[in-house]
């Protein structure tokens, strides 16, 4: 057997050295190449998977945000319509109040103006009557040669009353 091994060149020292050679290479490649490369590939795969997951989540969130936006938009439209309707109602109410107030004020102003006009007309009438009385008194005193102070006051008043009545 040992002769056969010798003929084939098998020697335990060479076996050991070739074995050590291979084991050194195995350890070196494991720690310098295989593991770092596998780790990088694994990390990259995890990152890509995470990225895809995050993208899916972002898309999902975007969809939910769009949905929420739509809902909020509808809600805002509804709220705006409600506010506008309410404002319109309140406006109409206010308008009624303002018109009513204005009418009241107009009435009061008209009434006040009427009263003032009446007062002025009365005053004017009184002034005219006084002037007329004076005029009548002067006319009578001129044509009767009577002292104006002696002319019957009652008669003048009656005449004026008659005049006033006829004028009306």
């Amino acid at each position: 057997m040992s002769d056969l091994l010798h003929q084939l060149g098998i020697d335990w020292k060479l076996l050991a050295s070739q074995g050590v050679n291979f084991l050194i290479l195995l350890v070196a490649l494991t720690y310098l190449v295989w593991r770092p490369l596998l780790n990088v590939m694994k990390d990259r795969r995890i990152k890509i998977e995470e990225g895809l997951k995050v993208t899916d989540e972002a898309e999902e969130r975007l969809r939910s945000i769009d949905k929420l936006k739509e809902e909020k938009s509808v809600e805002a439209d509804r709220e705006a319509l409600r506010v506008v309707t309410e404002a319109e109602a309140r406006g109409n109410e206010k308008k009624g109040e303002i018109i009513e107030n204005a009418e009241k004020m107009t009435d009061a102003l008209l009434k006040s103006a009427q009263e003032q006009a009446d007062r002025q007309a009365k005053a004017e009438e009184d002034r005219i009557m006084r002037y007329a009385r004076e005029l009548v008194t002067q006319v009578v005193s001129k044509y009767t040669d009577l002292d104006p102070s002696k002319i019957d006051e009652k008669l003048v008043t009656k005449a004026l009353a008659q005049l006033k009545k006829e004028r009306v």
Partner: peptide, 24 residues
């Protein structure tokens, strides 16, 4: 054995060179 050792050395040189260049 000599060529096996040279092969291992070549592998080691390439492996060490590669080690610092493995990037994400």
């Amino acid at each position: 054995l000599l060529l096996a050792i040279i092969t291992v050395l070549l592998f080691l040189i390439v492996a060490v060179w590669m080690r610092g260049r493995i990037l994400m």
